[in-house]
Design a binder for these strands. Structure first.
Lengths: 338, 338
DNA sequence: CATCTTTGTTTCATCGATGAAATGCCACGA
DNA sequence: TCGTGGCATTTCATCGATGAAACAAAGATG
């Protein structure tokens, strides 16, 4: 029987149950020494009044808010919503709610996140920067409970959970080379961002593999795509298909680009993988249901989410050893697009 | 110059600036009567100490937390992450952060959301229920600042923002009929959920259109899919393609199912739309980049997000008129899959 | 020049839950 | 019988920001 829960406090509940607010608190936080009979009485009163804990009050006293912030570029990118999904699930184990902030990959907004301007007072921050990079370490000050995701952007004293971008990109490219492809293009380069961003690291992996195999990488085959949306993949692929010397394979820096690229290929009647092979990166759920199913890099998203949340939890619980840098295992998932 | 922001309070900032905590508060909340010179001094002190407002304390005093909760079944479904993306953007205008809760479409979890057990004390709730339905109105008690999305599930006194599910589904089906299709199947039915859930309403629209046209709807052409994930769409389509009397069109109850279905068609060498036409529902970004591009219902997601947030804001700001029920405009987006 | 406004700042109490410590009660052993 | 210790509950102060109202100083008004 739940009543109007206007402004019911622990004191109100206590009054009804014949105890003090403090005892109500004890009951609700499972303090060991509460008589079972009292516990029942209090819980009944809680129910009757429709009492809900005021998290602001608790937060003020305890210094914990019970929520963490996840800051990512854009929920519209499959990889990020998959990541968000998993971070939320993992956070539940620690009793945390998750506030999601979209930075739009804008430097200004990313700075706001670090400074706290655009962030609720939360117990911690899991942050995948995009526009920030080395040299921005000074903006980290005051963010002790922070885990950086994705790129090893900062040298400062921060925990990092990263995928092995370069190695995985090299692996993907090597696979294409091993299949006999020679004119291998890349989609997703972005000269505007830092040299340790995902875009740059994946490009490096691609270049390494090509160089090791003695294959050429003419500039027109390395297509810039700033946004990594479906649309950008399609545009890039259309461009590649129009080249005089058409590539026989494309390595896309994420699956979203790859799916856009597959679309462009199909629209132009170009057969994949016969005429052009396509490899992606991220292994998002949609990759498996693309046509043809997308060969891609599995970066260990689940592992990333879990590690990030656990690492943050450890920090919040007072772990003070030096910041760690964790690389997840990645692997190539071979499907039919390459 | 940002320093260790351990536990800096307004009082500390005030001490440095030579004013009271109250004046600091005035500065930070843009109170009109503060001398410019004082304002500068305070802001400098804020910067110097790396002060960050304690939102718990503010929340305790003002009764506002500055965040709202968005409860949806699963961020893994394209429609929902698109919705989340937009809700976050709209909420920014009102200065709200958004906490996202995934219910997994589980009744138990949905009840926890309403009761507040699984929800931070937030300024309001935008909730798309799935397993709850008529008869569960009693669980609404105590949730005054609430906007229900999607299905007109409750008769109780709550604001609703809904799409015209039945009408839109009828429209989609009528379009297929108008293109000369007669053996039209449906994917996404779910007998387990309430009669006013999206699944049921869309099925009704489909059935209405078929009946009006005098077309048969044998049970084997109405495929159950409880989850509405890519996988379910693929499985359902595979099933349909194996029928003795193969359908010449499919209406999928969402785009994710439709994209899964397209995949199954392609894997079986069945040409779309020549051999079988496919229509989806939701017009998610991926629909446009499916192959062939997906004909689908545009349900006005942007409008839904905006209305929901604005309606909630109005309630929070004390609007007290009777709850409203808003239906968004939907339309058919014709592409090449049908 | 005394009074009334306006402007800028301060004082004080308060929001609701919890940490620390005190209290009352009962059981138990010597 | 008295002390000792454990259990259950209470008392009290406190976290940090803000609403209400008081206050001081500077201008406006007659």
């Amino acid at each position: 029987m739940t009543g109007k829960s206007a402004n019911v406090t622990m004191a109100d509940v206590g009054a009804l149950a014949g105890v003090t607010a403090r005892t109500v608190s004890n009951v609700l936080s499972n303090h060991p020494s509460v008589r079972p009979e009292t516990r029942d009485r209090v819980l009944r009163a809680v129910d009757q009044l429709g009492y809900r804990m005021n998290t602001s009050a608790r937060g003020l006293k305890t210094g914990r808010t019970g929520s963490i912030t996840l800051a990512i570029p854009d929920l519209g990118i499959d990889y990020f919503n998959e990541l968000a999904r998993r971070v939320i699930v993992e956070s539940e184990r620690h009793g945390w709610s998750v506030v999601i902030q979209q930075t739009g990959a804008r430097r200004e907004t990313e700075l706001d996140i670090l400074s706290g301007a655009r962030r609720q007072h939360s117990d911690g921050l899991i942050f995948q920067p995009h526009a920030l990079g080395p040299g921005d370490e000074k903006h980290l000050t005051g963010n002790d409970r922070l885990v950086i995701l994705g790129d090893r952007i900062f040298n400062g004293p921060v925990d990092h959970v990263a995928m092995a971008n370069t190695d995985a990109a090299r692996l993907a490219t090597q696979y294409l080379i091993g299949r006999g492809r020679t004119r291998i293009a890349a989609i997703g380069s972005n000269p505007g961002v830092s040299t340790i961003s995902a875009a740059s690291l994946r490009l490096q992996g691609y270049l390494q593999a090509m160089q090791e195999a003695g294959l050429p990488t003419p500039p027109e085959r390395i297509v810039v795509a700033e946004e990594w949306h479906l649309r950008d993949g399609a545009v890039a692929m259309t461009h590649l298909l129009r080249l005089d010397e058409r590539p026989d394979a494309v390595f896309c820096f994420n699956d979203t680009l790859a799916i856009g690229a597959l679309h462009a290929a199909a629209m132009n009647g170009v057969r994949v993988p016969d005429e052009i092979a396509v490899v992606g990166f991220d292994n998002v759920p949609a990759a498996q249901y693309a046509f043809p199913p997308l060969t891609t890099i599995e970066p260990g998203t689940e592992q990333i989410a879990k590690m990030a949340v656990d690492l943050l939890a450890a920090r919040v619980n007072g772990r003070t050893d030096p910041p760690r840098e964790i690389f997840t295992d990645s692997s190539l998932v071979v499907r039919r697009s390459a």
